[in-house]
Design a binder for these strands. Structure first.
Lengths: 128, 128
DNA sequence: GTTCATGCAAATCGTTTGCACAATG
DNA sequence: CATTGTGCAAACGATTTGCATGAAC
């Protein structure tokens, strides 16, 4: 009971994504494959990216929600995102700047800042 | 040389955002204020949220880029985001599960996972 | 041959923008 | 009065979807 058939295009999209170290947009994939598949449509790229994501072959980089959220707490803080109810909660945890040191020691990047999101189940959803 | 005048609506939006601990969408703010301002338009909400963000009174919670990005590396890893060229780079840094312990100790949440994004300047942009 | 994948174009949806009028200073 | 804020509706841009045709099995 396979849900999806084999598709050359889908395999190729996965290949392309694996070859590049970057984290491209659908558009970039489309441009990259347009020469190879002159009749390629952007819709098919989106469809296949979504199937590959569902299959766990690739990941979408985002916060889960597709639209903008705003936060009146402008001091630096980490976020907890409840996987059940979707709410985002500010954490009182102190900011750990040593994490940035770890990056600076192991790479040639200059890190200035970082954000953390924790995922799990919030208090309200554990004890309703 | 003030850039913006005082606006009752904008003050009210800021108030609403400060009152709630959550991190609402524009839509939620709109619904919340619709009774108070029956002629309110969603456009004005967006405009004011954007002004408040520019003024540093509130923050937008996002990755900076407005469209979806995909990652063929499905093993857990942290990301480095270059503030100059915008590229997102996978880090080889080990995942630090003790961070989740810190959350679990101080809250009643059950944390299962976390993501980190580091922001700064990448190697290529430091030495072009 | 039946079912899923594709190209194409139209639809969708969150967000932005142009305009005429109201509010601010 | 000069300029910014607002409501309204239209525009925008990334993504999704419906439909007819082509590929997979």
């Amino acid at each position: 009971m396979e849900k999806y058939r084999r598709s050359k295009l889908r395999n190729r999209i996965l290949e392309i994504l694996r070859e590049t170290g970057s984290h491209p947009h659908a558009d970039w994939v489309y441009d990259k494959l347009k020469k190879e598949y002159p009749r390629l449509s952007l819709g098919s790229v989106y469809r296949n990216l979504s199937i590959l994501t569902e299959q766990g072959m690739i990941r979408k980089i985002d916060f889960g929600s597709s639209f903008d959220r705003f936060d009146a707490n402008t001091t630096d803080h980490y976020h907890f995102i409840c996987e059940n109810c979707g709410s985002i909660i500010d954490l009182k945890l102190p900011i750990d700047k040593t994490l940035e040191d770890r990056v600076n020691q192991r790479t040639n990047f200059k890190t200035k800042n970082h954000k953390i999101q924790f995922y799990g189940i919030c208090e309200n959803c554990i004890n309703p």
